[in-house]
Design a protein around this nucleic acid. Structure first.
Lengths: 211, 211
DNA sequence: GTCTATACTAGGATAGAC
DNA sequence: GTCTATCCTAGTATAGAC
């Protein structure tokens, strides 16, 4: 039972239809934001860009979202939801290190497809908005806990370096989402996306040194 | 023999003194830019910030440098010169992989000391300015060739993974200069800078996997 | 709840006096 | 070659009509 039904129990259908329209519009907005954040980054993306891509007026955007920062936060929420869905779809009985590699592979794919929003860790107004955004924090924590569980399991099992603090491993994995190396490699024109992903997986899990 | 002496052979002293003043002022400017680029990044850094930190008027800045992009380019040139000087000071008779690790260690130190300028790869006007900046390109190429030589030697010697294309290794090393992981680890308050550097060196050269 | 039109600010760059 | 004062654009956000 959702909020609509609670508010208007006698006419849920019509209200639900309107909400669906509303939600579809917001989906389109967030999708545009997501693409633009991936392409240009938060600072270079303008609200005019978003409005133009969605095909509505800028003022209409502000009816849906109170600020540019909130737009970015919503895009991050959607991406984290996609991540969570992907992780939930993995086979928990597989070796944990294999699931971690699948997670990194997914991040790199999303990045190479131009769908990984990139937010500057410098911008303080954005940081403040994210830290105040409950949905964002919840999803970030859920993803972190899932990955953290696999990291510890993989270390126990001996497939990940046991001498590395788990937090170091977690941050190193997250950092693949904004790694500039895939983009540079692609710009050389020498490698396919699939080759780039395999190369990055190797440097990440096996390092540059010979084994 | 420098340009001054060529232009004014009968009075080199006075001209040289003025040039020293000029050059000292520009040093102060570039140093401020370098610090601000490391702290806030290119987009968040304003020319007013720079003027305030140097203690001169904004218009005076523009007597020395034609644009914000050129300020950033000059900061990059200085940093590349420092890098080159460091690399030139290394012992060429040491194992090449050891020199590569020293290079990464240096980058991480500079980054943690708040002296590594961070430029967005997205910003196109900045990219254009850099690609038109001869001194920048020259120094970047010199550093890349030095590192590239060690990479190939280390692969031949068997201390670096021979199956990785050298360009992948080079980009992976460069990417340590803007790696967000050191900053995140520092913000946990759990590790000293020296510990952070050792952890990063391990994840970079040995990877996350167990050996 | 969408539009046009506009307020307001930040910030890059310049004019012109000294 | 440094200053104060200003220009001008871009960009976030809002007012008000429909």
């Amino acid at each position: 039972m959702n909020a609509t039904a609670l508010k208007s129990p006698t006419a849920p259908a019509r209200r639900s239809f309107r909400e669906q329209m509303h939600s579809a519009r917001e989906d389109a907005i967030v999708q545009a934001v997501n693409r633009l954040l991936a392409e240009k980054g938060f600072d270079a993306m303008t609200v005019d860009d978003v409005a133009a891509e969605v095909g509505i007026a800028k003022a209409s955007l502000y009816r849906h979202f109170p600020s540019k920062e909130d737009l970015a936060a919503e895009a991050m929420v959607r991406t984290l939801e996609r991540a969570q869905a992907f992780l939930d779809g993995l086979d928990a009985s597989e070796p944990p290190v294999q699931n971690l590699q699948a997670a990194v592979r997914w991040m790199l794919q999303v990045q190479l497809q131009g769908q990984m929003p990139s937010l500057p860790s410098a911008n303080s107004s954005l940081r403040a908005a994210l830290m105040a955004h409950r949905a964002y924090l919840d999803r970030l924590m859920a993803v972190s806990e899932k990955l953290g569980g696999w990291i510890e399991a993989a270390q126990t099992e001996g497939s990940l370096d046991k001498t590395l603090p788990p937090i170091v491993v977690l941050y190193t994995l997250y950092a693949r989402a904004c790694d500039p190396v895939p983009g540079f490699l692609r710009s050389t024109g020498e490698y396919s996306d699939e080759q780039i992903i395999e190369l990055l997986l190797r440097t990440c899990f096996q390092g540059l040194g010979a084994r």
